[in-house]
Write a protein that binds this DNA or RNA. Structure first.
Lengths: 340, 340
DNA sequence: AATCTGAACGCAAACGCTTGCGCAACAGCG
DNA sequence: CGCTGTTGCGCAAGCGTTTGCGTTCAGATT
C-alpha cells in the first residue's frame, strides 16, 4: 500500500538504516545522500510508521492528556495551549476524556496509555490509587490542577491569594454578608475548593465578620450548579449582599439566578468570580484572572524538558503563576438599607 | 520492564499466540485456559503494546480528530461528545489542534496520522488539496462542519433554515434595518457563512427590504471579532435596529460593543445569535439552537459503523440534525422613532 | 477398529522500523 | 608510506504483537 522504508531505500539506492538515519537527522550520513533520500521520500510520500518506530525505539512521541471534560472552557483552553507546545516539539496528543466515574475507573484499571505515551499531563486530580497507577507508567507526569503530589510536576496558581483579593474587595466595598458558591463536591484530593474556602474564612475573620454557614452553597463548578446555589442563598432569612463564586461559570449561573429573581447586579447583589473566563468580559463580571492558557503551555514545556534530558529523573517542580483581580461591573457597595 | 506477552505466556504455561487469542476474545481457546491467562495477565499488570499490535495487525484502534481550536466552545463540545463514543467503542483519540495556518500546513504535508489511525473526524473544513490528502490515508472520513464532500460522511444542520427562522423573527418584530455579523474570513470551501448569508438575503428580499451592504460586517467567529463588527455597524450613518450574528460568540461580542456604546438591548438594538452556546442563556441571548454535542456523537457513531463493517466502503452519508429558534431577551420590536 | 472431524494449541513468519556493530574508504599524522 | 582516527554506510538482530498453518488429540462416524 503506502511506501515503506525499504521502498525508499531501494529507490535511493541505499540501505534502510541509512534512510532511517537520514530522515531523522542523525549523523553518519553524507549531505548528498541525505538530500537524495529526502527527495525520494518526499516523492514517494513516505511517512515512517509510528507503530514500528515506537516498537523499535521504545519512544512513542506521544503525550497522554487526561481531561475531566473537554467541553468546559477551562480545560479546553489549557488543552489547547498544551497541545500547541507538544505538537511544536513533534509530539502527538492522545486525549482521554474521563468525565464519568465509570469511564474514569475503566481508564485507570486498564491503563490504555501504558507503553503508548512518553509522558502524561493530567487536568484531573488523581486520588492516591490513581496517581500510583500513573506513576507505575514510569514516565514524566504533570498537572495544572490540584496541590502538590509526589512524582508530579505541577503548575498552578495561588488559590489563597486569589480568593483573598476577591473577598477583600467585597469587604472593602462595605459588604458584611458575603456568601460563597463553592465546588465542594469535586473529586477528593483536590485542594482548590478547600484552599479557597479557607482563604474566604480568613478574610472574613480578619474583617471581624462572623461566618454564617448558611451563606455557603455548592455550585459543582457548573453554570447550572451556580444557578442552583445562588437560588439557595437567596432563600435564607437574611440573604447575602455579595457573593464570591469559586469559578466564573458558577458566577454566571448566579447571575442568571439573580436575573430570574428580578434582582439587579450590582445594585442588589454584588458578584465576583474566579478564572476570567473568555466571556466574563461580556457579562461584565468582576473576577480573579488566572493565566489559564499559560498554565497549560508551561506544564507542557516542563514535561518536554524532562523528556529532553532523561538525566535527572523527577524534578517534581512546582510553578506558581500570577493572578490579579479584574474589576468590572458586577461589584459595588451594598445598598444603605440592605437588599430589602 | 513491564510485562510482555511472553512473560504472561510463560507464567501461564502456554504459548504467546494463545495468550493473544485469549485476551482478545478470539475463539480457539478453552474456557479454563482463557481464565487462567486472564488471571495471570491481571496479576502481572499486563497490557498489550499498542505499537506492536498495530504493527502486526494493521489496525491502530485510534481515531484522529482534527480541530481548528479546541478552546472554542463549539469544537470542545463536539469533541467531547465524539470522544465519548470512540472511547466507549475501545478507540483512543489522537487530537490535532490545527489553529494556525503554518501548523495546519505542516500537518497536511507531513500527515502524521498516516498509518496511525483507523479513521479521521475533522472539525475543520479541508480545502481540495487537504481533503485529497485525507482521502489518501485510505480510512473512513467524517466531518461535522461544512458542506458535502466526496469521501466524507458529514453530519450537520440546515444552515439556511436556521438563519431564516432567526432573520424572519426580526422581520416579524417589525425591524427593517437588519444587520448581519458574519464569519466570511473563514477557510475556503466552508459553505456555512455563505449559506447563512444567502438565507439572510432571501428573507430580506422576501420581506421587501432592500439590502444595504453597509449592514454586513465580518466578525471572524470570535467574541472580539463580533465586538469589532458591531462597532463598525454602529458607525454607519443609519445603524441597524437589529443584528443577526452567525454565531453566539460573535453575538456576545456584539452585546459587549453595545454595552460599551451605552445602548440597551433589546430596547435600542435587538440581537439574535446562532448555536445556543452554553452561556447564551446566561446573557439571555435569543438564538438558533443546534444540537452540537449530538452532532459530534452522531459523526462518531457513523465512523464507528464504517469501521465495523469494512464491506461497503464509503457510504458518504449526509445527516441533518434539527434546529430551533430559542426566544430569550435580546430581541424586541424596534423603537417607534429609530435608535436615536 | 480404522478413519474422519473439529477444537485447542504451538510454530514461525511477518509487520516496519531502530541501532549496535563491523567494515571499507579516506584523511591526517609523524 | 605505514598507522591511527574518522566518516559513511550496510548487516542483522531485535522490538512485541498477530495470524496462517500445522500438529495433536479426544470424540464421533463408519
Amino acid at each position: 500500500m503506502t511506501a515503506s522504508i525499504n521502498d525508499v531505500a531501494r529507490a535511493a539506492g541505499v540501505s534502510a538504516s541509512t534512510v532511517s538515519r537520514a530522515l531523522r537527522g542523525r549523523s553518519g550520513v553524507s549531505d548528498e545522500v541525505r538530500d537524495k533520500i529526502t527527495a525520494v521520500a518526499a516523492q514517494l510520500g513516505y511517512t515512517a510508521s509510528r507503530s514500528a518506530a515506537s516498537l523499535a525505539s521504545g519512544r512513542t512521541f506521544t503525550i497522554g492528556v487526561l481531561v475531566p471534560y473537554v467541553g468546559r472552557w477551562f480545560f479546553g483552553t489549557v488543552l489547547d495551549a498544551a497541545e500547541r507546545e507538544f505538537s511544536a516539539a513533534g509530539y502527538d496528543v492522545l486525549l482521554y476524556n474521563l468525565g464519568s466515574p465509570e469511564i474514569r475507573k475503566r481508564f485507570f484499571t486498564r491503563l490504555p496509555v501504558r507503553k503508548r505515551v512518553d509522558a502524561v499531563l493530567t487536568l484531573l486530580i488523581p486520588d492516591e490509587e490513581e496517581s500510583a497507577a500513573l506513576r507505575s507508567l514510569g514516565v514524566p507526569l504533570a498537572t495544572t490542577v490540584g496541590g502538590s503530589r509526589p512524582g508530579f510536576t505541577v503548575v498552578g496558581i495561588d488559590d489563597r491569594a486569589g480568593t483573598e483579593s476577591a473577598v477583600r474587595h467585597l469587604v472593602n466595598l462595605g459588604h458584611r454578608r458575603i456568601g460563597m458558591i463553592s465546588g465542594a463536591s469535586g473529586p477528593l484530593h483536590w485542594t482548590t475548593p478547600i484552599d479557597r474556602r479557607n482563604a474566604y474564612l480568613d478574610v472574613l475573620a480578619d474583617a471581624g465578620i462572623e461566618h454564617d454557614p448558611a451563606l455557603e452553597a455548592d455550585g459543582d463548578y457548573t453554570v447550572e450548579g451556580g444557578e442552583r446555589a445562588m437560588t439557595e442563598l437567596l432563600a435564607v432569612s437574611r440573604p447575602p449582599t455579595a457573593v464570591y463564586a469559586q469559578s466564573d461559570e458558577m458566577a454566571m449561573g448566579a447571575l442568571r439566578a439573580l436575573r430570574r429573581h428580578r434582582l439587579r447586579v450590582p445594585e442588589d447583589v454584588s458578584v465576583v468570580g474566579f478564572d476570567d473566563h473568555e466571556l466574563a468580559d461580556v457579562v461584565g463580571l468582576t473576577t480573579v484572572a488566572q493565566p489559564v492558557a499559560d498554565q497549560g503551555a508551561e506544564a507542557a514545556r516542563l514535561l518536554l524538558r524532562q523528556l529532553d534530558e532523561p538525566g535527572a529523573e523527577p524534578p517534581t517542580e512546582q510553578v506558581q503563576m500570577p493572578i490579579r483581580l479584574v474589576l468590572r461591573e458586577t461589584t459595588a457597595p451594598p445598598r444603605p438599607r440592605g437588599p430589602q
